[in-house]
Amino acid sequence: QLNAMAHQIQEMFPQVPYHLVLQDLQLTRSVEITTDNILEGRIQVP
């Protein structure tokens, strides 16, 4: 299920590496919260 959620987020934010999306999802278990984390700059994109 997390993989499906990660792919959904990757479609919206292809610039964010998959492993970072998955790592955040493991903590949040939420597409909405992880999306917010990306938008708020809480996930550092190399």
Rank of each mutant, 00 (worst) to 15 (best):
Q10G: 08
E40L: 13
G41Q: 06
F13G: 00
R42N: 06
N3D: 14
L2N: 03
Q10K: 11
V45N: 10
L27F: 10
Y18I: 15
L2Y: 08
N3C: 15
Q23F: 09
E32P: 07
L27E: 10
F13Y: 08
I43N: 02
I38Y: 03
L27V: 13
F13W: 06
V31P: 06
P46A: 11
N37M: 02
P14A: 04
P17T: 05
S30Y: 03
V16W: 08
T28F: 04
A6L: 08
L27D: 08
A6R: 01
E40N: 15
P14S: 04
T28C: 06
D24A: 03
R42H: 06
I9V: 09
I33A: 13
Q1F: 11
I43C: 06
V21M: 04
L20C: 13
L20A: 08
F13D: 02
Q23R: 07
P14R: 03
Y18S: 12
Q8F: 12
M12I: 09
P17N: 07
Q10H: 15
P46T: 11
M12G: 05
L22P: 00
D24K: 00
G41N: 07
Q8W: 12
V45Y: 13
N37F: 03
L27I: 14
A6E: 01
T28G: 02
P46F: 07
P14M: 05
Q1M: 12
M12R: 13
V16E: 03
Y18A: 13
V21C: 07
M5G: 04
E11Q: 14
V45P: 09
Q44M: 11
Q23L: 12
I33F: 06
G41L: 05
L25G: 01
L20Q: 07
I43G: 02
F13I: 03
A4T: 09
F13R: 00
L25Y: 00
A4D: 10
L2M: 08
Q44A: 11
Y18R: 14
R42Q: 04
H19A: 10
A4L: 12
V31C: 10
H19F: 11
E11C: 14
L22Q: 04
Q10N: 10
N3A: 15
L2I: 11
Q26C: 13
I38G: 01
Q23P: 00
Q44W: 15
L39G: 04
V16P: 10
Y18C: 14
Q10P: 01
V21P: 01
L25D: 02
R29N: 13
E32K: 14
Q10R: 13
V16C: 13
Q23I: 10
D24Q: 02
V31K: 08
Q26R: 10
V21G: 01
S30G: 01
R42S: 04
H19N: 10
S30R: 04
Q23H: 10
H7I: 12
Q26A: 10
R42G: 03
E32T: 10
I38P: 00
N3T: 13
P17H: 06
I43Y: 04
E11W: 08
I9C: 00
R29K: 11
A4C: 12
L25C: 06
M5A: 07
Y18D: 10
D36V: 15
T35P: 01
Q44H: 12
P14F: 02
Q44E: 09
P14K: 04
F13A: 02
Q23A: 14
V45G: 09
A6G: 04
V31I: 12
P46C: 11
H7Q: 14
V21L: 10
Q44R: 13
Q8K: 13
T28S: 07
E11S: 13
L25I: 07
Q1H: 12
Q8V: 11
D36L: 15
I38K: 00
Q23C: 11
I33S: 07
E40H: 14
T34W: 02
M12W: 08
T35V: 15
V45D: 08
P46H: 10
I43F: 07
N37T: 02
E40P: 00
I43Q: 01
E32D: 10
Q15F: 12
V21N: 01
I33E: 09
Q44I: 13
E11H: 14
A4F: 11
E11M: 14
S30H: 03
M12N: 07
Q44P: 12
Q1S: 13
Q15E: 15
E11G: 09
N3S: 14
E32V: 10
L20D: 12
Q44Y: 14
A4R: 11
F13N: 03
Q44C: 11
G41H: 06
Q8H: 10
A4S: 09
R42D: 02
H7W: 10
L2Q: 04
T35S: 08
T35I: 15
P14Q: 03
V16I: 14
R29E: 08
E32Q: 13
L25M: 03
Y18Q: 14
I43W: 05
V16Y: 10
T34E: 01
I43H: 02
L25W: 00
I38W: 04
T35D: 00
A4G: 08
Q44G: 13
L27R: 11
Q8Y: 12
